[in-house]
Amino acid sequence: MPTGVAIRDAREQLFDAAERVLLRDGPNALTSRAVTTEAGCAKGVLHRHFADFDAFLAELVLDRIGRIDHQAAALRDSAGTGTVAGNLTGALMALFGSVAVAIVGLVTSRDDLRARLRQAMPTGVPVLTEAAAMIASYLTIERELGRIAAEFDIDTLAPTLIGAVHMLFADRKGTPPEAGAVHKVVTAVIAGVAQ
């Protein structure tokens, strides 16, 4: 690629390229060279925008976590409509059907990345922690609406749902589960909770 060619929104272009490499080839294939090649730019572009590759990866993870906020708002807006199991199934399908599973694999495979993320997020596994918070905020609203029994511990139920559904999606190379399989797990986890 010729030098001196302006790249629009280089940060987002690099993030999107990293996401494609991550989804296609997995966390071990994610290198600065792979990202810049996928983005169609010189390697120096990445280092002009980020201190080093781990700084880039940390920003990528934080950017993708930010997208969960939009999903959380949509899930909260669905409270009181449809069924609790249906709303949770849709939200979890959207969450784990995205790059979230690959991001979890990336975070768990890179010690330096985890160390950087600990500065911004001192507890939990990035993406999974935010996903559990999304589910908990939704379930809290449903409990206030009387659609979830008051005596259930939402702070335990939310990560239980995340863990159970994450297991369905965890095989990066396998066929993703269908909505029916996710709904079955959600229904089993919330049995006795939904009213």
Rank of each mutant, 00 (worst) to 15 (best):
P2G: 00
P2E: 01
V5A: 11
I7T: 13
R8A: 14
R8S: 13
A10P: 15
R11C: 11
E12W: 10
Q13P: 02
E19S: 12
E19N: 05
R24N: 09
P27K: 10
N28V: 00
A29D: 07
A29H: 04
T31H: 09
A34R: 11
A39Y: 03
C41H: 08
C41Q: 03
K43M: 10
G44V: 04
H49C: 12
F50I: 03
F50Y: 07
F50Q: 00
A51E: 10
F53E: 04
D54M: 11
D54P: 02
A55D: 15
L57G: 03
L57C: 01
E59P: 01
L60V: 13
V61N: 11
L62W: 12
R64V: 12
D69F: 06
Q71W: 10
Q71N: 09
Q71M: 14
A73T: 13
A73S: 04
R76V: 02
G82L: 15
G82I: 15
T83V: 14
A85F: 04
A85D: 02
A85W: 00
A85K: 08
A85N: 12
N87P: 02
T89L: 05
L95C: 12
G97F: 02
S98F: 12
S98G: 15
V99W: 11
V101M: 03
A102C: 11
A102Y: 05
A102T: 05
I103L: 15
V107R: 12
S109N: 00
S109R: 09
S109E: 09
D111C: 01
R114Y: 06
A115E: 13
A115K: 14
A115D: 07
A115W: 03
L117I: 15
R118K: 15
Q119T: 07
P122V: 02
V125E: 15
L128E: 06
T129G: 13
T129K: 08
A132G: 00
A133Q: 07
M134L: 14
I135F: 11
S137P: 00
Y138K: 07
Y138A: 05
L139N: 01
L139P: 00
T140P: 02
E142P: 01
E142G: 01
L145M: 04
L145S: 10
G146M: 08
R147V: 07
I148K: 00
A149P: 00
A150Q: 08
E151L: 03
P159F: 13
P159A: 07
I162F: 11
H166A: 09
H166T: 11
F169V: 10
A170P: 08
D171M: 03
T175P: 09
P177V: 11
P177L: 13
E178A: 14
E178Q: 09
A181F: 05
A181H: 06
H183F: 09
H183M: 14
K184M: 06
V186P: 02
V186A: 09
T187V: 14
A188T: 08
V189P: 12
V189G: 12
V189A: 13
V193K: 11
V193M: 13
Q195S: 12
